[in-house]
Design a protein around this nucleic acid. Structure first.
Lengths: 189, 189
DNA sequence: TGTTTCTTTTGATCTAAATCAAAAAACGCT
DNA sequence: AGCGTTTTTTGATTTAGATCAAAAGAAACA
């Protein structure tokens, strides 16, 4: 999905605003493994994913790499509390595949929002989408078994299971690699 | 904390806007156990808690009552995805104590937002606060032990441990009542 | 093409927390 | 104040998933 397309899904957009979006966002091609941000830094960009796969993660107290979320084509990705809330990020963003992204800086977005009312809706929309996703996660993590959580991910984002390394998926689900491997073995046979 | 006070924490507010807030919100006193909304309904109000304690919860597939969150004086509470996103609520809101609330309907808030720019920031602010809270929860639920999660709640919202019933707290932490009772026994002695 | 490195699978054992069951304590009500 | 209901505690047992260890497969690279 194209970025203007995405905006049009949320709200009708005037031609000038569309031109504004096109000039305000910058198209980027980045290779697998590149980091979009580091833990502790301010995240100054909002990215729209044209193609590819992005992972958000953090390093926990035991030094373990833990996946917070996966983001794919047609979605926005950033660290919302950092980008919108102007705080230091607690997460990293890394590319799990070569990606084509459209990025806008915080000030760039503010400019767009001042000039085009339609674009103001975006911030709220992105926040709401993030919130909905995180609510689902909590419900899953509170009282679903490892296998049920795997099943749920398989329903909501099936492609992740093929595209992301097993270790990353396991920590996302809150389980160990070994357990995930066993769940897979059970289902495939 | 008073409601205009709260707004002033977020952003400077003109006198007219302050008058608008005072007239736009309705002061309510509700008794313990009252429900502010049901699962499946649209949540049409945003509440600011002047005093008291509110619990958000859902009934899971096994028919078990599971606490999603606790909200106390000086905080806004609603089901954000329902109120802001105009969808049916997946959660209930119930009062765990007699509460004094200030409520505004969706259309009432829209009116205020049209008339007073300052108030537009509120939606964002409320969404961001919710998001921050839920992010923390995910991190806790992913890889902290039952006791560590208890400890974390004790740091972030210590009064909940005294004010809410044990069963409600246990499900919030994603553990059984018995386990929570044992954790308590260990620490108190 | 073989060697090194990283990822996934498989196996054996252990443990945190669930489940089942029942007693004790606290609360609500007339 | 006393009785029934709900909530919390305590105990015994079970289990899902962690941990430890090592083999098997893939990918990376010279």
């Amino acid at each position: 999905m194209d970025i203007t397309q995405y905006f049009k899904h949320i709200t009708p957009i005037s031609e000038v605003a569309e031109a504004g979006i096109i000039s305000g966002f910058q198209r980027l091609e980045y290779p697998r493994k590149k980091h979009l941000c580091e833990q502790g830094q301010f995240v100054n960009h909002l990215y729209f994913i044209e193609s590819g796969l992005v992972r958000m993660y953090y390093i926990n107290k035991q030094g373990k790499d833990v996946t917070y979320g996966f983001y794919t084509e047609g979605q926005f990705v950033t660290v919302p509390e950092s980008f919108f809330g102007r705080t230091a990020s607690r997460y990293y963003l890394e590319l799990l595949e070569d990606c084509t992204l459209h990025s806008v800086s915080h000030s760039g977005l503010m400019n767009l929002m001042e000039n085009f009312l339609e674009i103001r809706l975006i911030e709220n929309h992105v926040l709401r989408e993030f919130l909905l996703k995180t609510s689902d996660r909590i419900v899953a993590l509170q009282f679903l078994s490892a296998e049920e959580r795997y099943q749920k991910l398989n329903e909501s984002q099936p492609s992740i299971l093929q595209r992301a390394p097993l270790g990353n998926i396991a920590s996302y689900l809150g389980i160990t690699q070994e357990t995930l491997s066993r769940i897979r073995a059970k289902r495939t046979v």
